[in-house]
Amino acid sequence: MKKEEQMRHVISILMENEAGALSRVAGLFSARGYNIESLTVAPTEDASLSRMTLVTRGCEEIIEQILKQLNKLIDVVNVCDISESDHIEREMMFIKVAANDMDCCAAIKRMVDIFRARIIDVRNKTFTIEVAGNRRKLDAFVSAIEDHKIIEIVRSGCIGIARGSNALKAQ
């Protein structure tokens, strides 16, 4: 398959908040050889429903098949490829960096300001920074402070929502 056909897609899934529902989705992707770039899941305003945001790559046919296969899962209430239309994506990242001297601290602080990130924990010789934004912003932040020693990175994976009044609801 040609590389350029492998477009990135953000798929929103509304599913019954049942034991094992997550493993049905994860199992579907591994069984059929689809890739998962990231996956997040949490309850919604309706406690009986979970909302999942799944980022995957594939050509048009594969994405169509993914949507159909997801729809086929009994626990899945509704599915939408939100990247097909105007939408917002955010991801959160914690990044722990070494802050050994004043120069270093100042440089990190400067980058944190530029990226509108926040330092949420300061300890002897470490800063823990919180950054939110789209994937590119987080990638850019990581490369911006690469000169400092990065101790640990945790990323939440992407969550997404459609712009405007469109909403993914139980049909």
């Binding site: 094992g20 493993s23 199992g27 009994i74 626990d75």
Partner: peptide, 14 residues
């Protein structure tokens, strides 16, 4: 068995 059969059932329940 719910885990084992998940990929080969239309649906399963515990």
């Amino acid at each position: 068995i719910v885990g084992i059969t998940r990929p080969c059932v239309k649906h399963n329940f515990l």
